[in-house]
């Protein structure tokens, strides 16, 4: 469920509401950002920027236009992409050695039950390689259907349905 009352209070610049929303969504946003900037330190900077925007621009969210989580996603992805394009970022990270969110799965030998990597493993294990790519581009990186179709070289008309069946395979086992 969407925390409608908290959102209303956030729009009224209520700090307590902000704090609760931060607690609810900061890990999700951090995951999204980190998947794009691929550097924890930089991701931390961007996370702070994102929440400052959430506070300052809470006026611009309207339930008529979509989900609050979607609104957060867009702010986060845009901020992360802006960062990636910045000169400071390019200087710090010349090249990256991973492509999608499955990179964050740590080596099996290092895992303990508490690690984040363990949490991710259970997702990735359920997904075919093409599904990992689809969800990575659409959900984490915010590609449009057209961009995904071109990047993965699959027909435009099948992006929507393929993505649904990929996500369903997660929902059936975990949801």
């Amino acid at each position: 469920m969407q925390p409608d009352e908290l959102i209303l209070q956030l729009k009224k610049q209520n700090e307590v509401a902000f704090s609760q929303i931060y607690d609810m969504y900061s890990e999700n946003i951090f995951g999204i950002i980190n998947n794009i900037v691929k550097d924890v330190e930089i991701a931390e900077e961007v996370l702070q920027d994102v929440f400052i925007k959430v506070w300052n621009k809470s006026d611009s969210y309207s339930a008529d236009k979509g989900r609050f989580f979607t609104w957060l996603l867009n702010i986060s992805r845009n901020a992360a992409i802006d960062k990636v394009r910045s000169k400071a970022y390019k200087n710090k990270l010349k090249n990256s050695d991973f492509d999608d969110f499955s990179f964050f799965i740590k080596d099996d030998m290092d895992l303990d039950s508490q690690s984040d990597g363990y949490g991710l493993r259970k997702f990735v294990d359920k997904l075919k390689p093409m599904c990992v790519k689809l969800i990575d581009l659409l959900f984490f990186k915010g590609y449009t259907q057209k961009e995904v179709s071109e990047t993965l070289d699959i027909p435009l008309g099948t992006v929507k349905s393929r993505n649904r069946s990929c996500l369903n395979s997660l929902r059936e086992t975990l949801g």
Partner: peptide, 22 residues
């Protein structure tokens, strides 16, 4: 499911970050 998935990819937000944001 998306909340779960994205949370699982998070390397873990340092608790001190919230103070800094506020």
């Amino acid at each position: 499911i998306l909340l779960e998935l994205s949370k699982a990819t998070s390397p873990g937000v340092k608790p001190s970050l919230k103070e800094s944001v506020v």
